[in-house]
Design a protein around this nucleic acid. Structure first.
Length: 277
DNA sequence: GCCACTGTTAGCAT
DNA sequence: CATGCTAACAGTGG
């Protein structure tokens, strides 16, 4: 469930339930899922209390007292959910946290293992290379800030939207949905964009992400994530996974192409390349 | 069985 | 630096 709206939804949920809980144990079942250079024994988490749950881009940060933060990235198939300890762990559950006076444990499960977790000092998070290089939050950007990001760039529009160093949090679904609503072709070189195009893009980005958060994100392939969050934004998708469907605006057939190895959906008429170059 | 997919991104080549 | 391709993984569906 890993784009900004899904991560935001999970963070809100976790924040509500985790804040104030005291950890009695942490167990790692798959050492490769922990990205730390010096893998920390999660047993040392015992006794610390959860202060806050935050998001930065697609990353989830769980702050404990004692200057400790647990970082999670869900990759493609990561799940973070509560479960009764009586439900047996399957082979894809890689990390479990247990709490004092709380009947449920928090489990991190990830079938494809593109996700990861890491332990960091809370006050050092933003000194970390990973975070230093992360682009700005799309919902915390003014239009002038947004414009300045494009200066001197010439990559194709969708590639840039997907680049987490450019803007943090947008993935394959929301890139396509944003471009459809901005009426811009994914293959456009951003050097061709004028201020009014960027205005459309900025508005579409904010609208799509806000709407998606309001609907608790998109739940695709429910067998993977219904456990954690049944979102409803998928019913508002206009192009993603809609190859050959009629465009909701002009009734042309939605096209699918491959871009950077990812499926890319768009309306060939509403998002016409030739209208710009 | 084989091949093409899949909500990601680090690391490498150009 | 900027950009784009590939591999890492496991599962599903044709």
């Amino acid at each position: 469930m890993p784009e900004l709206p899904e991560v935001e939804t999970i963070v809100k949920f976790l924040s509500k339930h985790l804040t104030g809980l005291r950890i009695i144990s942490g167990k790692l079942f798959c050492s490769q899922i922990c990205k730390d250079k010096k893998p920390l024994d999660p047993g040392i988490l015992k006794g610390f209390q959860i202060r806050d749950v935050r998001r930065r881009g697609k990353v989830i940060l769980i702050d404990l007292d004692g200057n400790i933060t647990i970082l999670f990235h869900l990759g493609m198939t990561g799940q973070l959910f509560f479960s009764s300890p009586r439900v047996s762990l399957d082979r894809h559950t890689h990390f479990v946290l247990k709490f004092a006076r709380y009947p449920q444990e928090l489990r991190f499960r990830d079938v494809r293992r593109f996700g990861y977790l890491a332990f960091m000092r809370t006050d050092e998070i933003f000194l970390n290379q990973r975070f230093k290089r992360l682009g700005p939050e799309p919902l915390e950007m003014t239009f002038p800030m947004f414009i300045s990001l494009f200066k001197g760039r010439r990559a194709r529009l969708k590639s840039l939207l997907l680049d987490q160093h450019f803007i943090a949090g947008i993935g394959n679904i929301y890139a396509d949905e944003i471009l459809f609503r901005a009426k811009l072709h994914p293959l456009l070189s951003v050097s061709l964009l004028e201020t009014f195009h960027l205005k459309r893009l900025w508005r579409a980005m904010r609208d799509v992400l806000r709407q998606a958060i309001k609907h608790k994100g998109s739940t695709i392939r429910t067998y993977i994530n219904a456990k954690t969050h049944p979102g409803e934004f998928q019913s508002f998708h206009r192009v993603y996974a809609k190859e050959a469907h009629p465009c909701s605006v002009c009734h042309s057939q939605i096209k699918r192409i491959k871009m950077n190895g990812r499926s890319t959906y768009f309306c060939p008429k509403c998002q016409d390349l030739r209208s710009i170059c």
